[in-house]
Deep mutational scan, measured.
Amino acid sequence: TKVFYNGTYVEFNNPEKAKKYAEKVAKKVGGTFTEKNGQFHVE
């Protein structure tokens, strides 16, 4: 499961961990995250 952010991504074996990371990054940058095709995108 990949989490895309700012033109790069971090890959996780565990979708649950990926979601938590996406939430954390989104919170940090004051943005939101969306799930597309089983991957997370932070905006």
Rank of each mutant, 00 (worst) to 15 (best):
N6K: 12
N13E: 14
V25L: 15
K2P: 04
Y21R: 02
V10M: 10
H41N: 06
G31W: 05
V25H: 05
K24Y: 15
Y5I: 09
T8Q: 11
V25C: 14
K24I: 12
E11G: 06
N37W: 07
V3A: 02
V29W: 09
A26F: 03
N6I: 05
V10D: 03
E16M: 11
V42L: 04
E23K: 11
K17E: 15
N37T: 04
P15T: 09
E35P: 04
Y21G: 01
K17I: 13
F4E: 02
P15E: 08
P15M: 12
G30W: 05
K24W: 15
K36F: 09
V42H: 03
K24P: 00
K27A: 11
K17L: 14
Y5G: 01
F12A: 01
V25K: 07
F40T: 01
A18S: 02
E35D: 05
K28S: 13
E35N: 06
K28Y: 12
Y21H: 07
K24N: 11
K19Y: 10
V10L: 10
G38T: 03
Y9C: 15
F40A: 01
F12Y: 04
N6C: 15
K2S: 05
Y5D: 01
A22S: 03
T8F: 13
E43G: 09
K28F: 12
T34R: 11
H41V: 11
E11N: 09
G31L: 06
G30T: 04
N6P: 00
Y5N: 03
T34L: 10
T34H: 12
N14K: 07
N14E: 09
F4N: 03
V42T: 02
K24M: 15
A22R: 02
K28M: 15
G38R: 04
V29N: 06
V29K: 05
K36L: 11
Y21L: 03
Y9V: 12
G30Q: 07
G7P: 00
E11I: 14
E23T: 08
F40C: 02
F33P: 04
H41S: 06
K36R: 14
N13W: 10
T1Y: 15
Y5P: 00
A18P: 00
E23G: 06
T34S: 11
A18I: 00
N13L: 11
T8V: 10
H41P: 00
T8H: 12
F40D: 01
K19Q: 08
F40L: 07
E16L: 11
E16W: 10
K28R: 14
G7Y: 06
E16N: 09
E11Y: 12
G38H: 05
V10W: 13
A18D: 01
V29H: 08
G30A: 06
E43F: 15
K36G: 04
F4L: 04
F4K: 02
K28D: 12
N6M: 12
E16C: 14
K27D: 07
G38F: 05
K28G: 08
H41Y: 15
E11D: 06
G31F: 05
A22I: 02
N14P: 01
F33A: 08
F40N: 02
G38S: 05
T8R: 13
F4I: 06
K27W: 08
F12P: 00
F12V: 02
V3Q: 00
V10N: 04
A18G: 04
G30H: 09
K19L: 10
Y5Q: 03
Y21V: 03
H41I: 13
N37D: 13
A26N: 02
F12K: 01
K2I: 07
Q39W: 08
K19H: 07
K19E: 06
T32S: 10
A18C: 05
H41R: 06
Q39N: 15
A26P: 01
P15N: 08
T1P: 06
G38K: 05
E35S: 07
Q39E: 13
A22H: 00
G7I: 02
F40K: 00
K19C: 11
A22D: 00
E35Y: 13
K20E: 14
G31D: 02
A22V: 03
T32M: 09
F12Q: 00
G7S: 06
F4Y: 13
A26L: 03
V29R: 06
Y9R: 03
K24T: 12
G38D: 04
A22Q: 01
V10E: 05
K2F: 10
K36V: 13
F4R: 03
K24V: 11
K2Q: 05
K20L: 13
K20V: 10
A26C: 11
A22K: 02
K17G: 09
N13T: 13
E43N: 11
V42Y: 03
K2M: 08
F33N: 03
F4A: 02
